[in-house]
Design a protein around this nucleic acid. Structure first.
Lengths: 226, 226
DNA sequence: GTTTAATTTAAACACTTGTTTAATTTTGTT
DNA sequence: AACAAAATTAAACAAGTGTTTAAATTAAAC
């Protein structure tokens, strides 16, 4: 759309650290506001002016720190997805029953996405948008890793004879995350349906009822009971 | 943003029929292009110029026929969601076993959303966007109706003693649609994972494997086997 | 064939967009 | 205190936005 007619110093460096790793207060502030607004209004629906107004900074600061709106999105994705991978790998090592592990997995997923509500909404939408593919490659890698973790947990259970073997392992994550997401995407519908008047009530419903439903569903699917 | 300084004749009438019901060829053409582009690039990410270029019409025609971009979205939603309701109500009347009915329900859902891929993506995204609430009220009504259909099917099964009673009926739709949607939203990820090289292979995977997985999951959740 | 209404058009409107500029202020180092 | 680097600013940039206008074309009705 617009070409850089000069190569800017896109990543100002302080204290000899690379700026896309070092995130000073102002950068984090921008990222948080961006996450909020992107998730509320979409990437295209949010202007840099919206962001800078809400973050109480000058418009130029976004370009100054991140180079462009596109790169801001990249930085946001990177910043928000780094540690889920670690959490799952730790779970793998735990010495508990397979079903317990699956239940914990579900809790981790829900908790993670709940904490970073915003960015996951953006991701799932922008992801479909072909032109944004490059920005989202890191996210694809994350998903591959997650799938491997899930696979090995379930195969453990199958080897122990507690999980049935005729399940499509690769489609279990879509069921877990999809259920949760659909609930979140239709938030106002379910708020009305279950009479969840406050933010707290909504979050409690997720923590208790929705989580229980997903765990019950996956258990029913996995556990041998013929 | 912009005020109408004069009340336009927004719905040109021909043959004495109301235009928001009568859709001539050009209107349908615009709606189809709008659906395609909205789903590819989002509502905000698609300009009226994009639409008019792809539909090979003048920019002004969109305002002429629909009044505004916002109203175009409303017309699109209305146009694409009218008949799902009927389909579900017919299913209710069918005289088949509860589990068969649930399986058919799942097939209807998947088929429906597959046929109107585009609009459902738009809906699920724009829905979250508070400012678009009015445009989407018709969709909320649709969901309420759907939920009632699902409820009555499952309660039938429970009354016959074939479905267990400790399930959260209201969360079954999220599991069905959520699983499917998550699969669709992460299309390119699963294309790579399952090596689905062509559009046909992808659709076949949905028709066979994904549908089977969802049916298997819901069956496991519903059917008594303690 | 004329008149009326509906359709289509190019151009303009007012406004928003992401980005860059050049000048200014703040900060850190010596 | 003096200097350099970094941060911040207001203003401008070119391009894009949804919408409206007024004139031109087409179709329908009489």
């Amino acid at each position: 759309m617009f070409k850089l007619n000069k190569c800017l110093i896109l990543h100002p460096i302080r204290n000899n650290t690379m700026s896309h790793i070092e995130l000073n207060d102002k950068k984090i502030q921008i990222l948080n506001v961006a996450e909020k607004l992107f998730s509320e209004k979409g990437f295209e629906g949010t202007s840099i002016r919206d962001i800078s107004k809400e973050a109480k900074i000058n418009i130029a600061m976004v370009s100054y720190y991140f180079g462009s709106k596109e790169r801001l999105l990249e930085a946001l994705i990177f910043h928000k997805t780094v540690d889920l991978k670690l959490q799952l790998e730790n779970l793998l090592q735990e010495d508990i029953k397979p079903l317990e592990k699956v239940n914990k997995l579900i809790e981790i997923y829900i908790n993670r996405i709940c904490l970073n509500k915003g960015i996951y909404r953006v991701l799932h939408f922008e992801l479909y948008n072909k032109k944004r593919e490059k920005s989202l490659q890191a996210f694809t890698e994350l998903k591959k890793g997650n799938l491997k973790s899930v696979e090995s947990i379930i195969k453990q259970g199958q080897a122990q004879g507690v999980f049935r073997k005729d399940v499509n392992i690769q489609l279990i994550t879509p069921t877990i995350i999809g259920t949760f997401f659909h609930f979140h995407m239709n938030r106002s519908f379910f708020e009305e349906l279950f009479d969840l008047k406050t933010e707290e009530m909504f979050n409690n419903y997720i923590k208790n009822d929705l989580t229980k439903h997903i765990q019950q569903t996956i258990k029913a699917l996995l556990v041998y009971e013929n």
